[in-house]
């Protein structure tokens, strides 16, 4: 009787297969919660610091919950960043290139994934090789080239305009675009060929087949690529500064110049912990950081339901 009990206990704790025991579950939950905390930590600590008043920021005894709750930091951040203008600049700078990236990646991915032609492997190898080249390597030559780039004899005038972002994206040279092309390539490759054959039997041309059959099948790929490229263009500051820093100021660019200003003031001793300034302090900096990533988090929260499902479904063809 006793041995039976201990066996039952053992089964409950360790499970039958090894991954269904109670012990396993507990360890898993502890690990997952711990890692989740690591990922959430920057957001939470920025949030708590951004609603602290100046006295609370200096007071080392306060670590998480502010004694004097304030939204002054956010008001200052909004004003300093010139929020509405910067927000609309940000949208312009990230939405157009995202559209260009998604459209051209889908086309190129379909060309590579669905069709067979001479030299395809070589071309794909070239694409991968170009992807390996460090981005810093391309900064200077790119700016040199973009100053007077023309395609088919049309002077594109890329500098000081968002064109510097979306025109290259349209030609497969956007930020990390190779990843998107490869994602679409994978998606279009696994669509059953019978579907295309049936459409072609009915007299559908290549473009029509692409629009009516291939695109609906790759909806998750559109979502993943759209989200990622939106995020990457939104957060891109060094390229943006090089290309159109004098014309547009996006939210992350504004944040960056605030941090630079804050740092230089700090090192010159204009701002110290005793003479904290109501405009240049950590609370305002974190408020700004949160403001500049809030749109991304919102988009992500709304899209993640489809996003995670899309990942689940990406393997199942014809779903």
């Amino acid at each position: 009787m006793n041995s039976l009990k201990s066996m039952n206990l053992k089964r409950v704790l360790l499970g039958r297969k090894g991954n269904d025991g109670l012990l396993f579950k507990i360890v898993l939950y502890i690990l997952l919660t711990g890692i989740s905390f690591i990922f959430l930590y920057p957001l939470l600590s920025m949030l708590s610091m951004s609603i602290m008043s100046l006295e609370d920021l200096i007071d080392t005894s306060i670590s998480w919950i502010p004694r004097n709750f304030t939204i002054l930091n956010y008001v200052n951040a909004f004003e300093w960043m010139n929020f509405f203008e910067a927000f609309s600049d940000s949208l312009k700078v990230s939405v157009y290139p995202t559209l260009a990236t998604v459209i051209s990646s889908a086309l190129i991915g379909y060309g590579f994934g669905h069709y067979q032609f001479f030299g395809k492997k070589v071309l794909m190898g070239m694409m991968l090789a170009m992807f390996l080249i460090p981005t810093v390597l391309t900064y200077i030559p790119t700016t040199v080239l973009y100053r007077d780039l023309s395609i088919f004899g049309i002077d594109l005038q890329l500098m000081d305009s968002i064109r510097a972002f979306w025109v290259p994206a349209l030609f497969g040279n956007g930020i990390r675009q190779t990843i998107f092309i490869l994602i679409f390539y994978q998606f279009f490759r696994i669509i059953p060929h019978e579907l295309f054959e049936a459409a072609e039997m009915d007299g559908s041309g290549p473009l029509r087949t692409f629009i009516t059959i291939a695109i609906p099948m790759a909806a998750p790929a559109f979502l993943i690529c759209g989200l990622y490229s939106f995020v990457w263009y939104w957060n891109e500051t060094s390229l943006a500064r090089l290309y159109f820093g004098s014309v547009y100021t996006t939210l992350p660019m504004s944040l960056e110049s605030y941090i630079n200003m804050y740092r230089s003031m700090y090192s010159q001793g204009q701002v110290t912990l005793d003479t904290v300034n109501s405009i240049y302090n950590t609370g305002v900096q974190y408020a700004m950081t949160l403001i500049s990533i809030a749109p991304l988090l919102l988009v992500y929260l709304f899209a993640q339901k489809w996003f995670v499902e899309g990942v689940d479904r990406s393997g199942i063809a014809g779903n």
């Binding site: 051209s104 190129i108 379909y110 069709y115 071309l123 694409m127 349209l170 030609f171 497969g172």
Partner: peptide, 13 residues
């Protein structure tokens, strides 16, 4: 057709 689809990338390259 395949080459036409990847034409944007070829031009970009």
């Amino acid at each position: 057709y395949g080459i036409l689809f990847i034409l944007p990338w070829l031009i970009g390259m």
